[in-house]
Simulated assay, not measured.
Amino acid sequence: MPDHIPAEALRRFMTGIYEAAGVPAADAALVAGLMTEADLIGADGHGVFRLAQYVRRMRAGGMNPRATPRIVEERPASALIDGDNGLGHLATTMAAHTAIAKARSQGVAWCGVRHGNHAGPASLYARMVMEAGMIGLYLAVGSANHLPPWGGLELLLSTNPIAVAVPAGEEPPIILDMATTVAAYGKVKVKAQRGEPMPEGWMIDKQGQPLTDPKRAGEGLLLPIGGYKGYGLALIFGLLAGTLNGAAMGRDVVDFNADDTTVTNTGQAILAIDLAAFGDPGEFRRRVDGLAREIRGSARLPGVDRIFLPGEQSAATRARRAAEGVPIPPPLRTQLDTLADELGAPRLGA
């Protein structure tokens, strides 16, 4: 059975690990906070699960623990940020804050990132924009290629996710966060660590047969959402978040799950839309409320208890884990204890 760790204890633990690995205190706290939030909302493949991998990459030279992200191209409604090969959360947070500031004066703003790294769940950054009273959109190039072009065998594309966060009034915000594959690869890694099989439909082998053993994932291909349509979305999102920024796409993408030393040059993009640029923000929020109620109250198929809107189940998970703690399975707990001992940092819950 997993241990349930209070979110604050998890955040303190990760902050201490990062500081022990040479990350400046302010950066360590920022990244640890975002990773804790990932665990709270149920994005288990993007929170503390990734800690040992990030630290391993920093210690092997593949990632810069003392990075200084900076703006390298800028116009009134856009910016390109170079992440200095640091923890991906740093450059992507900078992109979100820059987009918010620019959208306040320009109405909309687009910020791209190059030389970044894996930055956790997409919704974190769309929500940053939403919490500033705007609509936020986030795109990214995944950190390893697991998706072939439609009808092909060569892994030239990744899970390339999208997140969109839309503020409401009295109703909860609408927050979509999805990969362009049926399952994100982080979910495959979580299944492997827990010794659980994958459902059919996540992956196939190179003969086109279902692959359900996550420990054989390196032999398989992730399946796109909606067949060829998902392949098309993965390509377009990668062009916008990667190629446009001078970040990696196609054969240039480095598998950061298998390679700890090569710079990944991961790309992301954030769009901020100021509600006030399109009318009365209060009226927009009321209309979102009305639509949410229409959808939730609409006729259901037999056996369906409730129609959910995007983000509602993550919000419920967050409320539950905030009260009960974040579940840490025994294999992950062992990995974290080993990491803490290697760095001379306090163990989780110590």
Rank of each mutant, 00 (worst) to 15 (best):
L176H: 11
Y125I: 01
W150S: 12
P172M: 06
N160K: 13
N160W: 04
M130V: 09
G169D: 13
Y138P: 00
V108Y: 01
P149Q: 11
N117Q: 12
I162P: 00
H118N: 13
E74C: 03
A109R: 02
I175G: 01
I135S: 03
L156W: 12
P69Q: 05
H97E: 15
P149H: 11
L137S: 00
P172V: 08
L156N: 11
T68H: 09
R114C: 08
V72L: 06
G152L: 02
T98F: 02
N117T: 03
Y125P: 01
M94W: 04
L176C: 10
E73Y: 00
P167A: 11
Y125W: 08
A122F: 04
G151V: 10
P121E: 02
P148K: 04
I175M: 02
L147Q: 07
E74Y: 00
M134W: 11
A165V: 02
R104K: 14
V108E: 07
P69I: 05
G88I: 09
Q106R: 12
G116P: 10
S143R: 03
D82E: 10
N160F: 06
V108M: 15
H97P: 01
N145R: 10
G107H: 04
W150L: 00
A122K: 08
L176P: 10
G83F: 07
I100G: 01
C111A: 14
R70P: 09
L124I: 12
I71K: 00
E131M: 01
A99T: 04
R127K: 14
V129M: 08
P173I: 03
H118C: 01
G152R: 08
I175F: 00
A101L: 09
L147G: 03
E170I: 10
D177F: 02
